[in-house]
Design a protein around this nucleic acid. Structure first.
Length: 715
DNA sequence: ATTCAACGCTTTTTT
DNA sequence: AGCGTTGAAT
């Protein structure tokens, strides 16, 4: 039998072996927390006789859940399959599918993604005659999401807020809720909120799940929100065998409602909690670790701690100054080449950035250089228009109440049925209290429709009947998908377009069919509903393939939990990283944690880059290096101007170091710029380092010292 | 009533 | 660079 603890260090061993009861593991980056988690579960199963199905293990991604199950199978054998290992959202769906009626939903409820949510919300704007320009829908949705993550109903929110904007939010939230229910739809926040309502509000249901889960374990606990916290709390009673693992330095989701206070609250709720700190890092070189420590220790709101390693210092961190984003991309390519020449595999290289848009230039360069790479995140496969179009047919098949999908389905391909027609149909459906799909079958009875529209609706209804028949007969998902593609005319419409774009979309749809077939072969109990559900809960991070032999490009958010031999972080510029929108002290600390997460992903080599100018919404911005660069210990860093192009005439340094004298520019001065021509200074920022200049076409912010620009007249 | 083309505005991070 | 809205053409 495998020895579960001999390879562990003392605190790790303690965390694995400690008796039941609440356990808080404060696990620094790279300190082996996944190992602790899996070994503890294995220990519970093997040594303490806990049945695998009595353990609920919450991970941050579906992929991590799968890996945990696999590792566990290696430790305790196939019994591990009975373990509930999943994300919060997947676990909630699993519970809600069984108990839907308890919270006023049908079992076949649909999960609405952000695009769906916006459609529902926009409909509410119409109904309530709210102007979307005055109340940005995305912002309102954000407020609703925030309320739900704190388990606030519209009434609860109303009690808490007041004011013109907030009153409207409450009003919209209330209507949004009604409409969601009408659609049989739940948004991501509902999955959590309704599960908490269910468990807290229905003693019989609660007891069932409490009895079932003897042990509850949560990874990445610092990124849980209030709803998740309450979920853990209610499931953990009465045994209180709750283990949470987290690191306050790695909390990067507060904008999504995550609350680091959950860690503090844990000790308050469970005063008897056992606390274990894992501070030995097994991942990174000494240099990387000390740099990461130096950066994160600038944050005020954190538990003081210091990760240590007994590894060598390794190589210095390479810091490259690039002229623009193209040079930065070439630097990335050159560094990849260098690493590969040294015998490293492409798979061991990760390139991180703050925003998805940054991947584009790098991709272009890598394609040109023939470097194999994968991009995680960005425009998502399942959110492409053509995919959503055909999925709308499947979603209505699975849930006839889903009016959002119905409207989408009716509109694509074009069949002469637009919003006006759908509105009439909805009116009719509402009068009779029947789903839109059924109303469509009776199109002949709906007033004020054109004959062609009646025909189109009838045909649609027939298609839906056919799809539903296939589904009920247990047809394979890829077969139902094919039937939708052909029956809807979606495929024919694209084929008829004969454009490159249409060709690409057809290929996308073929890919979807392949994915459906793959699902069909892989799923334990394949069904249309579970296929749609898997798609809805599919996360970008689930797609990371560390064995693909390719370089991985992704946002730092997606890099959480991963590690690479070589890590490059690009775009380290003020207003990009830290992002301009993170302008409060707290938000800035979160940006710093994000940087910390990025740094600590690296095992051996770290390359950091910033560009002096970057193309941004049409124009070109001139930028200062990120303040975070100045926070790196000087002895850990080797700075270089990218050697890939001729150095600019002016050089400048970052952070607290020497600063070149900028031309003395004042508001009102006239300047001549090499590229933009004549302009006038409209503002001076950051102690004269940056100037705002209005040119004939636009106002730009330039770095006073290095922009190719001279003063032509005093203001 | 639908559809299409132009315009103006905004873009962090994601389950 | 993309999206949503607006206005015009069918």
């Amino acid at each position: 039998m495998l020895d579960l603890v001999s390879a562990l260090n003392p605190p790790q061993r303690e965390a694995v072996l400690v008796e039941g009861g609440p356990l808080l593991v404060l696990a620094g980056a790279g300190s082996g927390k996944t190992r602790v988690l899996t070994h503890r579960i294995a220990h519970l199963i093997r040594e303490r006789g806990v049945p695998p199905e009595a353990i609920l293990a919450i991970t941050f991604t579906n992929k991590a859940a799968g890996e945990m199950r696999e590792r566990l199978a290696g430790l305790v054998g196939p019994a591990a399959r009975a373990l509930w290992a999943s994300t919060f959202h997947s676990a909630c769906v699993r519970i809600l599918r069984r108990e839907a009626h308890e919270v006023g939903y049908e079992r076949d409820f649909t999960i609405f993604d952000q695009a769906d949510q916006l459609r529902v919300l926009r409909a509410c704007y119409e109904e309530l005659s709210v102007d979307p320009k005055r109340f940005a829908p995305r912002a309102v949705l954000g407020r609703i999401s925030d309320a739900k993550s704190r388990l606030l109903t519209p009434d609860g929110l109303a009690d808490e807020v007041s004011g013109f904007f907030d009153d409207k939010v409450v009003e919209l939230y209330r209507r949004y809720e009604d409409r969601l229910r009408l659609n049989g739809g739940m948004d991501f926040d509902d999955l959590l909120m309704l599960t908490v309502e269910l468990l807290e509000g229905r003693p019989a249901v609660r007891e069932r799940y409490q009895q079932r889960f003897e042990h509850v374990m949560v990874d990445e606990y610092q990124d849980t929100n209030h709803a998740q916290y309450r979920l853990v709390r209610v499931l953990g009673e009465p045994q209180r065998n709750v283990m949470v693992v987290g690191d306050d330095d790695q909390g990067i989701y507060s904008w999504r409602g995550a609350d680091i206070r959950n860690i503090l609250d844990f000790e308050r709720d469970y005063p008897e909690a056992h606390v274990v700190a894992l501070e030995q890092n097994y991942r990174s070189t000494g240099t990387i670790l000390s740099a990461a420590n130096a950066v994160v220790s600038r944050n005020r709101g954190r538990h003081p701690k210091r990760l240590w390693t007994d590894r060598d210092d390794g190589e210095p961190i390479l810091l490259a100054t690039c002229r623009d984003e193209h040079e930065e991309a070439r630097l990335v390519a050159a560094q990849i080449r260098r690493a590969v020449d040294e015998g490293r595999s492409h798979a061991e290289i990760g390139v991180f950035y703050r925003t998805n848009a940054q991947s584009r230039v790098i991709e272009d360069t890598l394609v040109r250089d023939g470097v194999p790479y994968q991009v995680v995140g960005g425009p998502r496969f399942y959110e492409r228009a053509e995919v959503k179009d055909v999925l709308a047919y499947l979603r209505v098949t699975a849930n006839p109440a889903d009016a959002v999908s119905f409207a989408r389905m009716v509109g694509t391909p074009k069949r002469g049925v637009g919003p006006g027609c759908v509105a009439r149909l909805s009116w009719y459906a509402e009068q009779l209290g029947i789903p839109l799909a059924d109303a469509a079958a009776q199109a002949d009875l709906v007033p004020d429709l054109r004959p062609a529209q009646r025909t189109a609706l009838r045909e649609l209804a027939e298609l839906l009947t056919e799809l539903r028949r296939l589904d009920e007969a247990g047809a394979a998902v890829d077969r139902i998908l094919e039937a939708a593609l052909d029956g809807s005319g979606l495929r024919a419409a694209l084929a008829g377009e004969r454009t490159i774009e249409a060709q690409g979309r057809l290929e996308t749809l073929d890919e979807l069919v392949v994915l459906a077939a793959e699902y069909q072969g892989r799923a334990e109990e394949p069904s249309l509903r579970s296929f749609l559900e898997e798609i809805s809960l599919y996360a970008d991070a689930d797609a990371v393939d560390q064995e693909s032999g390719r370089v991985t490009l992704m946002t730092i958010h997606n890099a959480k939990g991963l590690e690479f031999d070589v890590v490059m972080i690009v775009g380290l510029e003020e207003s990009l990283f830290p992002h301009a929108r993170s302008d409060t002290p707290d938000a800035l600390e979160e940006e710093r944690r994000l940087f910390y997460v990025g740094l600590t992903r690296a095992r051996a080599r770290l390359v950091l880059a910033h560009a002096q100018s970057r193309a941004m919404h049409g124009g070109r911005d001139y930028r200062l290096p990120s303040r975070f660069l100045a926070e790196l210990p000087a002895e850990a860093v080797e700075a270089t101007r990218s050697t890939l192009s001729t150095p600019a005439e002016t050089s400048w340094s970052w952070g607290s170091g020497a600063r070149r004298g900028a031309p003395d520019l004042q508001t009102g001065d006239s300047v001549m710029h090499a590229t933009f021509g004549e302009g006038v200074i409209t503002g001076v920022e950051q102690g004269g380092e940056l100037v705002r200049v209005r040119f004939s076409d636009a106002e730009r912010r330039l770095i006073a010292a290095s922009a190719p620009m001279r003063k032509v007249a005093e203001g």
